[in-house]
Simulated assay, not measured.
Amino acid sequence: MSLSRRALLSTAGTAGAAAVVAAIAPPAAAARHRGPRTPRSLRQIPLQGAVNVRDLGGYRTLDGERVRHGLVYRADHLGKLTDADLTTLGGLGLSRAIDFRIPLEVASDGADRLPAGVTAVSRPITDNGLFGQLHAVIGSRDPVRQEEALGGGRAAAFMADVYRTFVTDAANRNAFGQTLRELAARGAGPVLYHCTSGKDRTGWTSWLALRLVGVPEHLATEDYLASNTIRAAHDARVREGLRQAGLMRNPELIVPLQEVRREYLDAALSEVRAGYGSLYRYVTAGLGLDPRALVGLRERLVG
């Protein structure tokens, strides 16, 4: 055990601290489950104007506890919510909604519609230029340009690069770290965070939060991959709409951009190992979470 891990146990002196340490052991020590299963504990919030809204609670931890429901919600963008959706969200008792979108995304899809009393927090995390480049390529209506930009594995490679910036970009690290610290804050009300599709920036935040409170890697990864099942019908309609509008001859080119894939998550984790050596070092040295914040996250969200 490294000195920093001893310090964590000494600071906390609880079984919860031991669970945190076990949860963020090097990924190679854990079994690798790659199946496209939807987690049995998934608790989706049905809305008309958003697709991928769910409660992060319900998962079992390594020590047999369970992540509490009703404290953390993950979502796609909330700019198209109906009045009925606002009523549904209002019933969750949210204190704040954290928006990871960059200004270009907000301008395209609209600012969040939120129930009265919910504090809107803008916390942009870069998409490495994905949104702007995708709009330009699709807007060109040029099948040759679209193939050159997105075909031959290039779309998937671009997504892997986006995930690497979650680790390498200092501003991104600050945003992820600040969000996790807020989730750990005592007395904080329920929090929702989201990006545009609720799968990449939101997915990485959720994967980290689940791992840090002691959820096994394969369950955190199932939660991450569940976006594919949840978004499948909506994303297929988007592709068909592009075809019918004459914007894309082959809209299947954007499938790698619409999906989450284990290879994208692995790209971020490879960067974690290269830059920090371990997930523990990434969240402490990279994201700025001290041992008390890690233990606070566990104590607030698990029980």
Rank of each mutant, 00 (worst) to 15 (best):
G277Q: 03
M248L: 10
P124F: 01
Y276P: 00
R154V: 01
G117Y: 03
E105Y: 07
A17N: 09
L114P: 04
R6I: 11
V260P: 02
V272H: 03
D142E: 10
R101Q: 12
P115T: 09
E217D: 15
N250H: 05
R164F: 07
L208G: 08
V121F: 03
E263F: 00
E271Y: 07
P26G: 00
P216T: 08
L150H: 01
R141E: 08
D290C: 03
L180R: 10
D127F: 02
L294F: 08
E65A: 15
G153V: 11
N172G: 15
S140R: 08
G187P: 10
S206R: 01
R40A: 15
R237M: 05
G129V: 07
L212G: 05
G246A: 05
S140V: 06
G296Y: 04
A209W: 01
L9V: 11
I230K: 02
R211N: 10
R181F: 04
G246Q: 12
L269W: 12
A170V: 08
A188M: 07
Q258H: 11
G241Q: 04
D109M: 12
G132R: 06
T11N: 13
L86F: 09
Q146D: 05
R32S: 02
R43F: 12
P124N: 11
R96Q: 15
R154Y: 00
A170P: 05
L104H: 03
L94M: 06
D99F: 05
R40M: 14
V295T: 14
L86V: 12
G286T: 00
L81S: 08
S122D: 14
G152H: 11
E182Y: 05
L279E: 09
D142C: 08
R40P: 04
R261S: 13
G79Y: 12
R273M: 07
T11H: 15
Q48G: 12
R261Q: 15
Q44E: 14
L212H: 07
A285Y: 00
I254C: 02
L94E: 03
F158D: 07
V106A: 05
A23G: 15
C195S: 15
V53G: 01
E263D: 13
S197N: 12
G110I: 01
T126M: 00
F166C: 01
A18Y: 02
H33D: 14
V118L: 10
R68W: 04
V121C: 06
A28H: 04
R6Q: 12
S140Y: 08
G90M: 05
S10R: 14
A157K: 03
P39S: 10
A171Y: 02
G303K: 04
D266G: 02
L289Q: 08
